Simulated assay, not measured.
Amino acid sequence: MKIHLRFKERMHEMDTSGDRLISEIQDVLGLTEYEAKIYLALAVHGRMTVSEISKLSGVPRAKCYEVLSGLVLKGLVVIAGSKPTKYEPLPLKEGFENRIAQMRGEIEMKAARSKLLIEDISKLKRGDFPRREVRVMILEGHDAIVASSINDASNAREEVLIALSSAPIKFEWKFYLPKLTKALLRGAKFRFLVPSISEFIGRIRNITVGVENPQAELRSSRRLKVPFMVIDRRITYLYITDPSLGVITMAIRIVDKNFGEQVRDIFGELWKLARPYNPSGDQVSEQAY
């Protein structure tokens, strides 16, 4: 109760109702009203339980879990303890930078896709829309590449095959992997071919939390030089990397079932040669794979 009153007093000092701050947070960070209220409460007070967050923000407790998951996915909040589960905001500057980078990537992705959409609508208007067309899109810029890749993968309905190269590429998996949970809940199967199982197993477990019978498999291989991803046998991403800079410089997004099937077959062959994940912990050198 004391915490609740202190927060209300702070809000009164900053703004009579707090509506202005909440509205600005919504506009700048692209949040819903509930997300803005909870984020502001966490930003002012710090680490709290769901019960405390609900009381301070005025958001119904039943809604808090969904809203907090959204804030975690948007790189603004992290889970910071269990029994009971607590949440805390990232440092303000870091959180804002995370979210702005996501929004920038989403805008760049939409801008690139809008060109294809304009072409498709124009063709349909002229009556010459083809029955089958291979669609190729070049994506440049880390944020645009990541936003497009995660968006397609999270909308998968059947399977997602992700093959990563051994080149050291900077990629904020802790922010992006949770978005794949939506596809897992839908029943999509995931296969990850990674350079090192030990580095990824914890991250994979995180996205399967709360998913009944999650379909996610993991194997390791250091053979791969060019990372790629195949979604529902139809959408393929080929990634061009610069190991010296540790970044993805370009991606080729190809929408074509025939091509997707061929790349899927390549993934299948690599999968057979890869080292399976062994939950028992028996030590097998990953170098051999």
Score class of each variant (00 low, 15 high):
His4Val: 14
Leu5Met: 11
Arg10His: 08
Met11His: 08
Met11Trp: 07
Thr16Tyr: 14
Thr16Gly: 13
Thr16Ala: 14
Ser17Val: 14
Gly18Arg: 08
Ile22Met: 05
Ser23Asn: 15
Ser23Ile: 13
Gln26Gly: 05
Tyr34His: 10
Glu35Thr: 03
Ala43Gly: 10
Val44Phe: 10
Gly46Leu: 08
Met48Glu: 11
Val50Ile: 14
Val50Thr: 11
Ile53Val: 08
Ser54Gly: 08
Ser57Leu: 06
Arg61Gly: 07
Arg61Tyr: 07
Lys63Glu: 04
Val67Ser: 12
Val77Asn: 04
Val77Phe: 11
Val78Asn: 11
Ile79Val: 15
Ala80Asn: 15
Ser82His: 15
Thr85Pro: 09
Tyr87Glu: 04
Pro91Ser: 09
Leu92Cys: 09
Glu94Asp: 15
Phe96Trp: 09
Phe96Cys: 14
Glu97Met: 11
Glu97Arg: 08
Arg99Leu: 08
Arg99Trp: 01
Ile100Cys: 03
Gln102Cys: 07
Met109Phe: 14
Met109Asp: 07
Ala112Arg: 09
Ser114Ile: 02
Ser114Trp: 06
Lys115Tyr: 14
Lys115Thr: 03
Leu116Tyr: 13
Leu116Glu: 13
Gly127Ser: 11
Phe129Ala: 12
Arg131Thr: 10
Arg132Glu: 11
Val136Pro: 06
Val136Trp: 09
Leu139Cys: 05
Val146His: 05
Ser148Thr: 04
Ile150Ser: 02
Asp152Asn: 13
Ala153Pro: 06
Asn155Phe: 05
Val160Ile: 10
Val160Arg: 00
Ile162Gln: 01
Ala163Ile: 01
Ser165Ala: 12
Ser165His: 03
Ser166Thr: 07
Lys170Tyr: 01
Phe175Gly: 10
Leu180Met: 06
Leu184Phe: 11
Leu185Glu: 05
Leu185Pro: 04
Val194Asp: 00
Pro195Gly: 06
Phe200Lys: 14
Arg205Trp: 12
Thr208Arg: 15
Asn213Asp: 02
Pro214Val: 01
Pro214Gly: 06
Glu217Gly: 02
Arg219Thr: 00
Arg223His: 09
Arg223Gly: 13
Val226Ile: 13
Pro227Trp: 01
Phe228Asp: 00
Asp232Trp: 15
Arg233Phe: 11
Arg233Gly: 05
Arg234Phe: 12
Tyr237His: 05
Thr241Gln: 13
Asp242Pro: 04
Pro243Arg: 11
Leu245Met: 12
Gly246Ile: 02
Val247Tyr: 03
Met250Asp: 03
Met250Phe: 12
Ala251His: 11
Ala251Thr: 04
Ala251Gln: 03
Ile252Gly: 05
Ile254Thr: 08
Asn258Gly: 15
Asn258Tyr: 13
Phe259Asn: 03
Phe259Gly: 02
Glu261Lys: 15
Val263Met: 02
Val263His: 00
Arg264Thr: 09
Ile266Asn: 10
Phe267Lys: 02
Trp271Pro: 06
Pro276Leu: 11
Pro276Thr: 02
Pro279Phe: 08
Asp282Ala: 12
Asp282Lys: 14
Gln283Val: 15
Val284Phe: 12
Glu286Phe: 09
Glu286Trp: 08
Gln287Thr: 15
Gln287Lys: 12
Tyr289Trp: 13
